[in-house]
Design a protein around this nucleic acid. Structure first.
Lengths: 117, 117
DNA sequence: CGTCATGTGTCGTATTTAGTACACATTTGT
DNA sequence: ACAAATGTGTACTAAATACGACACATGACG
Protein backbone atom coordinates (compact mmCIF):
# COMPACT_ATOMS: atom_id res chain seq x y z
CA UNK A 1 0.00 0.00 0.00
CA UNK A 2 2.30 2.70 1.30
CA UNK A 3 6.05 2.34 1.68
CA UNK A 4 6.16 -0.92 3.54
CA UNK A 5 9.14 -2.16 1.59
CA UNK A 6 11.34 0.94 1.80
CA UNK A 7 10.54 1.25 5.51
CA UNK A 8 11.72 -2.29 6.13
CA UNK A 9 14.82 -1.62 4.11
CA UNK A 10 15.61 1.50 6.09
CA UNK A 11 15.18 -0.23 9.42
CA UNK A 12 17.26 -3.18 8.37
CA UNK A 13 20.02 -0.94 7.08
CA UNK A 14 20.02 0.97 10.33
CA UNK A 15 20.44 -2.23 12.29
CA UNK A 16 23.16 -3.22 9.92
CA UNK A 17 25.39 -0.29 10.78
CA UNK A 18 26.11 -1.93 14.08
CA UNK A 19 25.63 -5.55 13.24
CA UNK A 20 26.46 -7.14 9.92
CA UNK A 21 24.11 -10.05 10.55
CA UNK A 22 21.39 -7.81 9.22
CA UNK A 23 22.04 -8.47 5.57
CA UNK A 24 19.15 -9.36 3.28
CA UNK A 25 20.32 -12.92 3.18
CA UNK A 26 20.75 -13.44 6.89
CA UNK A 27 17.56 -11.71 7.88
CA UNK A 28 15.67 -13.66 5.24
CA UNK A 29 17.09 -16.89 6.57
CA UNK A 30 16.10 -16.11 10.15
CA UNK A 31 12.65 -15.03 9.05
CA UNK A 32 12.30 -18.16 6.96
CA UNK A 33 11.95 -16.75 3.44
CA UNK A 34 14.15 -16.61 0.37
CA UNK A 35 16.63 -13.73 0.15
CA UNK A 36 15.43 -12.86 -3.34
CA UNK A 37 11.91 -12.56 -1.98
CA UNK A 38 12.94 -10.25 0.85
CA UNK A 39 14.90 -8.16 -1.62
CA UNK A 40 11.81 -7.77 -3.78
CA UNK A 41 9.68 -6.93 -0.79
CA UNK A 42 12.06 -4.20 0.32
CA UNK A 43 12.11 -2.64 -3.11
CA UNK A 44 8.35 -2.85 -3.40
CA UNK A 45 8.64 -5.08 -6.41
CA UNK A 46 6.09 -7.42 -4.87
CA UNK A 47 3.26 -6.84 -2.45
CA UNK A 48 3.96 -7.06 1.30
CA UNK A 49 4.08 -10.64 2.55
CA UNK A 50 1.43 -12.55 4.46
CA UNK A 51 0.47 -11.64 8.00
CA UNK A 52 2.56 -14.45 9.49
CA UNK A 53 5.66 -13.46 7.55
CA UNK A 54 5.15 -9.78 8.31
CA UNK A 55 4.95 -10.55 12.02
CA UNK A 56 8.12 -12.63 11.98
CA UNK A 57 9.87 -9.88 10.05
CA UNK A 58 8.68 -7.25 12.51
CA UNK A 59 9.96 -9.30 15.46
CA UNK A 60 13.29 -9.83 13.75
CA UNK A 61 13.68 -6.10 13.24
CA UNK A 62 12.41 -5.20 16.69
CA UNK A 63 9.37 -3.37 15.40
CA UNK A 64 5.75 -3.33 16.50
CA UNK A 65 3.80 -5.98 14.63
CA UNK A 66 0.56 -3.99 14.46
CA UNK A 67 2.38 -1.02 12.98
CA UNK A 68 4.13 -3.16 10.38
CA UNK A 69 0.90 -4.92 9.52
CA UNK A 70 -0.74 -1.53 9.08
CA UNK A 71 2.01 -0.48 6.68
CA UNK A 72 1.35 -3.72 4.84
CA UNK A 73 -2.31 -2.73 4.56
CA UNK A 74 -3.43 -5.45 6.95
CA UNK A 75 -4.88 -5.85 10.40
CA UNK A 76 -3.92 -8.62 12.79
CA UNK A 77 -6.26 -11.60 12.64
CA UNK A 78 -6.76 -11.57 16.41
CA UNK A 79 -8.06 -7.99 16.30
CA UNK A 80 -10.38 -8.90 13.48
CA UNK A 81 -11.72 -11.81 15.49
CA UNK A 82 -12.47 -9.55 18.44
CA UNK A 83 -14.35 -7.12 16.23
CA UNK A 84 -16.28 -9.86 14.46
CA UNK A 85 -17.68 -11.14 17.71
CA UNK A 86 -19.52 -7.87 18.33
CA UNK A 87 -19.61 -6.14 14.97
CA UNK A 88 -22.16 -3.46 15.69
CA UNK A 89 -20.57 -2.42 18.94
CA UNK A 90 -17.05 -2.18 17.59
CA UNK A 91 -18.08 -0.71 14.25
CA UNK A 92 -19.85 2.12 16.07
CA UNK A 93 -16.97 2.67 18.44
CA UNK A 94 -14.32 2.76 15.76
CA UNK A 95 -16.28 5.08 13.51
CA UNK A 96 -16.92 7.36 16.47
CA UNK A 97 -13.22 7.51 17.17
CA UNK A 98 -12.27 8.18 13.57
CA UNK A 99 -11.89 11.93 14.09
CA UNK A 100 -11.05 11.88 17.77
CA UNK A 101 -7.57 13.12 18.66
CA UNK A 102 -5.06 10.60 19.96
CA UNK A 103 -5.46 12.11 23.37
CA UNK A 104 -9.13 11.22 23.58
CA UNK A 105 -8.57 7.66 22.41
CA UNK A 106 -5.74 7.24 24.88
CA UNK A 107 -7.94 8.46 27.68
CA UNK A 108 -10.51 5.84 26.78
CA UNK A 109 -7.84 3.14 26.67
CA UNK A 110 -6.63 4.08 30.14
CA UNK A 111 -10.11 4.33 31.48
CA UNK A 112 -10.86 0.82 30.33
CA UNK A 113 -7.52 -0.53 31.47
CA UNK A 114 -8.18 0.84 34.94
CA UNK A 115 -11.25 -1.33 34.84
CA UNK A 116 -14.12 1.09 35.23
CA UNK A 117 -16.74 -1.55 34.62
CA UNK B 1 -16.71 -19.37 8.69
CA UNK B 2 -19.99 -19.64 10.52
CA UNK B 3 -23.40 -20.04 8.94
CA UNK B 4 -23.34 -17.06 6.63
CA UNK B 5 -25.10 -18.91 3.85
CA UNK B 6 -27.90 -20.49 5.86
CA UNK B 7 -28.52 -17.18 7.62
CA UNK B 8 -28.96 -15.43 4.30
CA UNK B 9 -31.25 -18.16 3.13
CA UNK B 10 -33.39 -17.90 6.22
CA UNK B 11 -33.71 -14.15 5.95
CA UNK B 12 -34.54 -14.29 2.28
CA UNK B 13 -37.15 -16.98 2.83
CA UNK B 14 -38.72 -14.92 5.58
CA UNK B 15 -39.01 -11.94 3.27
CA UNK B 16 -40.41 -14.20 0.64
CA UNK B 17 -43.45 -15.17 2.67
CA UNK B 18 -44.84 -11.73 2.08
CA UNK B 19 -43.23 -10.84 -1.20
CA UNK B 20 -42.45 -13.25 -3.98
CA UNK B 21 -39.84 -10.98 -5.46
CA UNK B 22 -37.46 -12.49 -2.97
CA UNK B 23 -36.63 -15.58 -4.98
CA UNK B 24 -33.03 -16.62 -5.46
CA UNK B 25 -33.18 -15.47 -9.03
CA UNK B 26 -34.70 -12.06 -8.44
CA UNK B 27 -32.55 -11.23 -5.45
CA UNK B 28 -29.49 -12.34 -7.36
CA UNK B 29 -30.44 -10.15 -10.26
CA UNK B 30 -30.96 -7.09 -8.08
CA UNK B 31 -27.72 -7.75 -6.26
CA UNK B 32 -25.92 -8.23 -9.54
CA UNK B 33 -24.75 -11.83 -9.34
CA UNK B 34 -25.71 -15.10 -10.98
CA UNK B 35 -28.60 -17.03 -9.42
CA UNK B 36 -26.55 -20.22 -9.35
CA UNK B 37 -23.90 -18.37 -7.40
CA UNK B 38 -26.36 -17.05 -4.82
CA UNK B 39 -27.79 -20.52 -4.50
CA UNK B 40 -24.35 -21.93 -3.75
CA UNK B 41 -23.64 -19.15 -1.29
CA UNK B 42 -26.83 -19.82 0.61
CA UNK B 43 -26.08 -23.51 0.86
CA UNK B 44 -22.51 -22.85 1.92
CA UNK B 45 -21.21 -24.64 -1.12
CA UNK B 46 -18.87 -21.75 -1.77
CA UNK B 47 -17.24 -19.21 0.53
CA UNK B 48 -19.10 -15.99 1.29
CA UNK B 49 -18.79 -13.42 -1.49
CA UNK B 50 -16.60 -10.34 -1.61
CA UNK B 51 -17.14 -7.38 0.67
CA UNK B 52 -18.86 -5.37 -2.05
CA UNK B 53 -21.27 -8.18 -2.90
CA UNK B 54 -21.95 -8.92 0.76
CA UNK B 55 -22.84 -5.29 1.37
CA UNK B 56 -25.20 -5.16 -1.60
CA UNK B 57 -26.79 -8.39 -0.42
CA UNK B 58 -27.19 -7.06 3.10
CA UNK B 59 -28.85 -3.89 1.82
CA UNK B 60 -31.16 -5.90 -0.39
CA UNK B 61 -32.25 -7.99 2.58
CA UNK B 62 -32.48 -5.04 4.96
CA UNK B 63 -29.72 -6.29 7.22
CA UNK B 64 -26.82 -4.54 8.90
CA UNK B 65 -23.79 -4.64 6.64
CA UNK B 66 -21.25 -4.90 9.48
CA UNK B 67 -23.08 -7.85 10.96
CA UNK B 68 -23.31 -9.63 7.63
CA UNK B 69 -19.64 -8.94 6.92
CA UNK B 70 -18.80 -10.37 10.32
CA UNK B 71 -20.73 -13.53 9.50
CA UNK B 72 -18.75 -13.65 6.29
CA UNK B 73 -15.55 -13.50 8.32
CA UNK B 74 -14.69 -10.01 7.10
CA UNK B 75 -14.46 -6.48 8.37
CA UNK B 76 -15.51 -3.44 6.41
CA UNK B 77 -12.65 -1.80 4.55
CA UNK B 78 -13.49 1.61 5.99
CA UNK B 79 -13.08 0.32 9.53
CA UNK B 80 -9.80 -1.26 8.59
CA UNK B 81 -8.62 2.03 7.15
CA UNK B 82 -9.44 3.85 10.37
CA UNK B 83 -7.49 1.32 12.41
CA UNK B 84 -4.54 1.34 10.05
CA UNK B 85 -4.09 5.06 10.48
CA UNK B 86 -3.36 4.66 14.19
CA UNK B 87 -2.52 0.98 14.64
CA UNK B 88 -1.03 1.09 18.10
CA UNK B 89 -3.82 3.14 19.55
CA UNK B 90 -6.62 1.05 18.12
CA UNK B 91 -4.89 -2.27 18.65
CA UNK B 92 -4.53 -1.46 22.33
CA UNK B 93 -8.07 -0.23 22.64
CA UNK B 94 -9.61 -3.23 20.93
CA UNK B 95 -7.57 -5.75 22.90
CA UNK B 96 -8.50 -3.95 26.09
CA UNK B 97 -12.16 -4.23 25.20
CA UNK B 98 -11.96 -7.89 24.28
CA UNK B 99 -13.30 -9.08 27.62
CA UNK B 100 -15.32 -6.03 28.53
CA UNK B 101 -19.07 -6.54 28.71
CA UNK B 102 -21.24 -4.90 26.07
CA UNK B 103 -22.35 -2.43 28.67
CA UNK B 104 -18.88 -1.06 29.20
CA UNK B 105 -18.21 -0.73 25.49
CA UNK B 106 -21.54 1.00 25.00
CA UNK B 107 -20.73 3.43 27.74
CA UNK B 108 -17.48 4.30 26.00
CA UNK B 109 -19.29 4.75 22.70
CA UNK B 110 -21.77 7.14 24.27
CA UNK B 111 -19.10 8.99 26.11
CA UNK B 112 -17.22 9.59 22.90
CA UNK B 113 -20.38 10.44 20.98
CA UNK B 114 -21.23 13.09 23.53
CA UNK B 115 -17.91 14.59 22.61
CA UNK B 116 -15.94 14.68 25.81
CA UNK B 117 -12.81 15.88 24.10
C1' DC C 1 44.07 -12.12 -5.46
C1' DG C 2 41.00 -15.33 -4.71
C1' DT C 3 36.88 -16.56 -2.35
C1' DC C 4 33.02 -15.85 0.06
C1' DA C 5 28.99 -13.30 0.92
C1' DT C 6 25.80 -10.11 -0.94
C1' DG C 7 21.81 -8.26 -3.62
C1' DT C 8 18.95 -9.07 -7.37
C1' DG C 9 17.00 -10.64 -12.14
C1' DT C 10 14.29 -14.26 -14.20
C1' DC C 11 11.11 -17.86 -14.18
C1' DG C 12 7.93 -20.87 -12.33
C1' DT C 13 3.99 -22.51 -9.37
C1' DA C 14 0.41 -23.94 -5.97
C1' DT C 15 -3.62 -21.98 -3.75
C1' DT C 16 -7.25 -18.91 -2.98
C1' DT C 17 -10.67 -15.61 -4.40
C1' DA C 18 -14.60 -14.42 -6.75
C1' DG C 19 -17.07 -15.21 -9.60
C1' DT C 20 -19.69 -16.58 -14.93
C1' DA C 21 -22.25 -19.51 -18.21
C1' DC C 22 -25.29 -23.00 -19.40
C1' DA C 23 -28.29 -26.68 -18.98
C1' DC C 24 -31.85 -29.10 -16.77
C1' DA C 25 -35.43 -30.96 -13.86
C1' DT C 26 -39.02 -29.21 -11.02
C1' DT C 27 -42.56 -26.31 -9.47
C1' DT C 28 -45.97 -22.56 -9.99
C1' DG C 29 -49.37 -19.73 -11.99
C1' DT C 30 -53.23 -19.19 -15.06
C1' DA D 1 -52.34 -28.12 -19.99
C1' DC D 2 -48.65 -25.32 -20.74
C1' DA D 3 -45.62 -21.39 -20.41
C1' DA D 4 -42.93 -19.13 -17.21
C1' DA D 5 -40.29 -18.95 -13.29
C1' DT D 6 -37.50 -21.37 -9.97
C1' DG D 7 -33.40 -23.71 -7.73
C1' DT D 8 -29.35 -26.10 -8.62
C1' DG D 9 -25.58 -29.31 -10.78
C1' DT D 10 -21.51 -29.10 -13.69
C1' DA D 11 -17.80 -26.94 -15.79
C1' DC D 12 -14.88 -23.26 -16.50
C1' DT D 13 -11.97 -19.04 -15.66
C1' DA D 14 -9.35 -14.61 -14.75
C1' DA D 15 -6.91 -12.42 -11.30
C1' DA D 16 -4.66 -12.11 -7.06
C1' DT D 17 -1.83 -14.10 -3.25
C1' DA D 18 2.33 -15.83 -1.52
C1' DC D 19 5.88 -17.51 -2.24
C1' DG D 20 10.51 -20.93 -4.03
C1' DA D 21 14.64 -22.03 -7.03
C1' DC D 22 18.50 -20.81 -9.38
C1' DA D 23 21.86 -18.13 -11.53
C1' DC D 24 24.75 -14.27 -11.86
C1' DA D 25 27.39 -9.96 -11.44
C1' DT D 26 29.41 -7.17 -7.91
C1' DG D 27 31.75 -6.08 -3.76
C1' DA D 28 34.11 -6.91 0.70
C1' DC D 29 38.03 -8.58 3.17
C1' DG D 30 41.52 -11.51 4.95
Amino acid sequence: MTHFGPTIREIREQLREGDRRYSVRQVAQRVGIEPAYLSKIERGEVAPPSEATTVRLARELGEDADVMLALAGKISADLQAIIRKRPRLFADLIRQLKEAPDEAVLRVVREVRDGNW
